[in-house]
Simulated assay, not measured.
Amino acid sequence: MALPRKLIYPAVFSYDDVDGCYSQADSTEEALYMAKDALELVLEDYISSMFEDAPKSSQIKDIKVESNQCVALIEVDVDQLIKRNSSKTINKTLTLPSWLTELGIKNKLNFSKILQDGIKKELGI
């Protein structure tokens, strides 16, 4: 499966100027920002599966809203989400033939970068 470039989910907002309607934001811009932030936090858990088991997005036509609500599409850039969460590194043990290791050291190769680049190429990211 190819890595998706963008994930888009609908979010239902209630208008904050309607009596009895509560919001986590003071403006539409802030509500959209907060919705995207919350969605990104949830989707971070699906990076390791390349989003294969991420929740499926609803079709807008299937979402029922009340008169004081509206639907907005919230888009998450998958590449950016992965990059923001990629600062964590882990140590992996790697087995190479001794002659290849010696040649790489002699040529001052960055083994970690070469391995990362190769894995990214293999995954298509």
Rank of each mutant, 00 (worst) to 15 (best):
I74K: 04
A38D: 07
M1V: 14
S86G: 14
N110S: 10
S112R: 12
N91H: 08
T95I: 08
Y33F: 10
L115Q: 12
I114S: 07
S57R: 07
K113S: 07
L32A: 03
T95R: 05
R5I: 07
P4F: 01
A25E: 02
E30W: 01
K88L: 14
A72V: 07
A31H: 02
S49F: 11
D45S: 14
V65L: 06
K88Y: 11
L96Y: 08
R5W: 04
K36A: 04
S57E: 09
V65H: 08
K120S: 13
L96Q: 04
K92L: 11
V78H: 02
F111G: 03
S23M: 03
E30Y: 01
Y15C: 15
D16E: 15
S87R: 12
Q80I: 04
T95C: 04
L73D: 02
Y46F: 13
M34A: 13
K92R: 15
S14P: 04
R84A: 07
L73P: 04
A2C: 13
P4S: 06
S49H: 11
N68R: 13
D62S: 09
I63D: 01
Q69S: 02
V18E: 07
E66A: 14
I90R: 08
E40G: 02
E40V: 02
D26M: 12
K36W: 01
I90L: 14
K92H: 10
A31P: 03
K83F: 12
V65R: 11
D45E: 13
K56H: 05
N110T: 11
K92T: 10
L109K: 09
S23W: 00
N107E: 15
L100I: 15
S48L: 12
D117C: 10
L73S: 09
Q69C: 02
L41R: 11
N91W: 14
I82E: 01
K61A: 06
I8H: 03
S87D: 08
K92V: 09
M1T: 14
L41D: 14
K121I: 02
D53S: 15
I8T: 10
